[in-house]
Design a protein around this nucleic acid. Structure first.
Lengths: 232, 232
DNA sequence: CGAGCCATTGACAGAGGTCAAGGCGTGTGG
DNA sequence: CCACACGCCTTGACCTCTGTCAATGGCTCG
């Protein structure tokens, strides 16, 4: 293994319950690499040679077709990505690039598949990871098809609010350009969506957002655990 | 097992490589049920008690929120659905209803998870199924976000054409109302999309479609294996 | 033959993208 | 210290895509 802080990696979900022998073997051929912002890590259509795990920083998954581009997900640690492609020994369906400076652990696909054969606990963890990923994409698709842009923004703010202080204030963790991509709209449209939400007590001061009429906002957003509850 | 034609079930992908003992045990508690058209099989938000496998007929997965509804997928045999919810012992994220008359095999979630622990071949088949499902949803999301309605229809016709005779003729396997749902648009919009495609050699005669200018149609549709290739 | 469903078409409205212009803050260089 | 340039965000005008509502025509089935 190259450049790896072993104890840190050992605490990341897919590895916590792994046998020592398999852990050793998997890390044997793995890389831990640092990347500057805006570096493309993988390209859709390429064979899936490595399983990727975000250890630090932020990574964006995106898709392209017909000259258009769309953000599929934004990942923060600890997140595994392109697991399905690795298991099926297929090509990547999405591309990935860093947003922040980031550290990414890369494990050869071969070793991942082998470790799953050998170590039932690791296999179970990977299956759970895959199932969670599946459900995430389903929620994203539901959100995309069932909500307007304004509603997606409102629900995003409510989620961010619940996950942090819940004190009526939200600090955006990404610039608005990126937030627009996450929410599946253009930056211009995001500005308009914020303007629309002013009537629902959403006050924008740079990257700080105050929510002064939570009841009104929730009434507009209609959050549901079947879309908004991350990790269910 | 109740009402099950054992040899038939044995030939369905997840069961082909299963050990006899596990196969017996799984089927022990399973139901094979017949349903008339338009019957709701599962409801989003309910706990995932059974893994479902479509043996015959057509099943639609759909999602609801805020009084709106959207089709997530249309399944034909042999298709497993809601596998992720079963593995995570979570609630359904989608609802399901029959379109046709259908036969569905239902296996208690408990037994599925137990069989995966006991039978590595079955576990592997289930993981492959889950990974394939994941990639399907990703493709659906990409198609939804990157293509207009007209483009989605054009690509659907090209896929249908390639999968059947490839003789310039396509026979629609569902009524247009359902096709519109599959493509994520209203029936009115589907009609207009067909009208738009007339200029690209698409001639509609009831449920028979003639494609007389494949080159033009392909040029418009810009198909890509990373969205359109089913089972990659 | 009539009821009812489906598909089609037209008119309209809303959501969202594109293009262009301008404001504001930050940082750099004179 | 100020001037300028650059990037990001915002705003306005406009257009496309899509959904909604309503009316019509065709088909099937009782």
């Amino acid at each position: 293994m190259r450049g790896i802080d072993v104890p840190t990696v050992r605490e990341i979900p897919p590895f916590t319950e792994m046998s020592d022998a398999c852990f050793e073997e998997v890390l044997q051929m793995a890389y831990l690499q640092r990347f500057p912002p805006q570096v493309q890590l993988i390209t859709e259509g390429d064979p899936a040679d490595f399983l990727h795990i975000v250890i630090e920083g932020t990574v964006e998954l995106f898709g392209t077709s017909n000259g258009r581009e769309t953000t599929m997900a934004v990942l923060r640690p600890p997140s595994t990505f392109i697991l399905a492609a690795v298991l099926k020994d297929a090509v990547y369906l999405m591309s990935a690039r860093t947003i922040d400076r980031a550290r990414v652990l890369m494990i050869p696909a071969e070793n991942v598949r082998h470790a799953m054969e050998e170590d039932p606990a690791f296999a179970r963890a990977m299956v759970m990871e895959l199932a969670s990923g599946f459900r995430s994409v389903v929620k994203t698709l539901k959100e995309q098809k069932l909500r307007t842009g304004v509603e997606r923004l409102a629900n995003y703010l409510i989620r961010a609010h619940d996950q942090t202080g819940s004190d009526g204030q939200v600090e955006l963790t990404e610039d608005k350009r990126t937030l627009a991509a996450v929410l599946g709209m253009t930056p211009e449209n995001l500005s308009r969506a914020f303007a629309t939400l002013r009537a629902y007590g959403v006050e924008v001061h740079g990257s700080t957002i105050n929510l002064t009429k939570m009841d009104d906002l929730i009434h507009l957003a209609q959050p549901t655990p079947l879309i908004d509850h991350r990790s269910i």
